[in-house]
């Protein structure tokens, strides 16, 4: 009798396993640049809500990280379906690889650079504070590896400050870390992304200067499809929809 019960139970468990994981569920893994991660979470939530009534369960897994690291992982066979990079260089290089040459590459957002301080009423509306000697450290993302770092360098260069600033620069490995340096107050000033300022609990915290777009090359963030799947394609076309573009814009990015 116990045997019969056990058999029935096993059957149910096995059946459930297939039911939930096999037939009716789709899964994609998205490697996303850490600066875009909070926005991406919101986008995925919205995508799930509009596809809720369809027959399949969509499971979207986000992997946040630096684009350089993701690039190296993709080249070495990481199981990602989509790659949302912080720049256009890496998707462009991936496209040159035969495997990923599927014409899917496109710009999904334009990053906006801002000079931010966790001190209230410290940064003026023209960034003139950079010319003062009132701060010991200015945090920027490392221009060698981070697109926001390149933009910071271009901004400082166009202000004729790059040479003099050498002594004051501290470099974060990415824009998230740069933000930590400024947020913790260890650096009084920092070049961060505008979307980070918007994601603060109270957006009135600290003070900032939104750097005019004329002072740096546009920070084009591009995405590329790595594996052919219907869910992956659906998600990409959702990203290009007006609803998605609204979310991206609301999070402090410009649209391509």
């Amino acid at each position: 009798m116990w045997n019969a019960k056990l058999k029935a139970l096993t059957l149910i468990v096995v059946y459930q396993f297939f039911f939930l994981n096999g037939a009716l569920a789709d899964e994609i893994k998205i490697a996303v640049a850490s600066n875009f991660y909070p926005t991406m979470k919101e986008l995925v939530k919205h995508f799930e809500s509009i596809t809720l009534n369809s027959d399949t369960t969509n499971n979207i897994v986000l992997i946040s990280g630096s684009s350089g690291k993701h690039y190296a992982q993709i080249l070495n066979g990481a199981p990602f379906d989509l790659f949302f990079s912080a720049d256009k260089l890496r998707p462009n290089m991936l496209e040159k690889e035969e495997v990923f040459n599927n014409q899917s590459r496109f710009t999904y957002a334009l990053g906006k650079l801002a000079l931010w301080s966790s001190f209230n009423e410290y940064v003026d509306s023209d960034g003139q504070v950079l010319y003062t000697d009132d701060f010991r450290f200015l945090a920027i993302a490392n221009p060698k590896i981070a697109p926001y770092g390149v933009a910071s360098k271009e901004t400082l260069t166009s202000m004729n400050l790059w040479q003099d600033m050498e002594e004051k620069l501290v470099r974060g490995e990415n824009i998230a870390q740069t933000f930590q340096f400024a947020k913790s107050g260890n650096a009084k000033l920092g070049f961060v992304s505008y979307s980070q300022i918007l994601s603060l609990n109270s957006s009135s915290e600290g003070s900032y200067w939104l750097v005019p777009q004329s002072m740096y090359q546009p920070i084009e963030q591009q995405a590329i499809l790595l594996k052919d799947s219907s869910l992956g394609k659906d998600f990409l076309s959702f990203i290009k929809s007006n609803e998605a573009l609204d979310i991206i814009k609301r999070n402090g990015y410009d649209l391509p």
Partner: peptide
């Protein structure tokens, strides 16, 4: 260790 990390990030393998 940071220099190594930067080289990987910059694709200077």
């Amino acid at each position: 260790s940071i220099a190594i990390y930067d080289h990987v990030e910059a694709m200077e393998y």
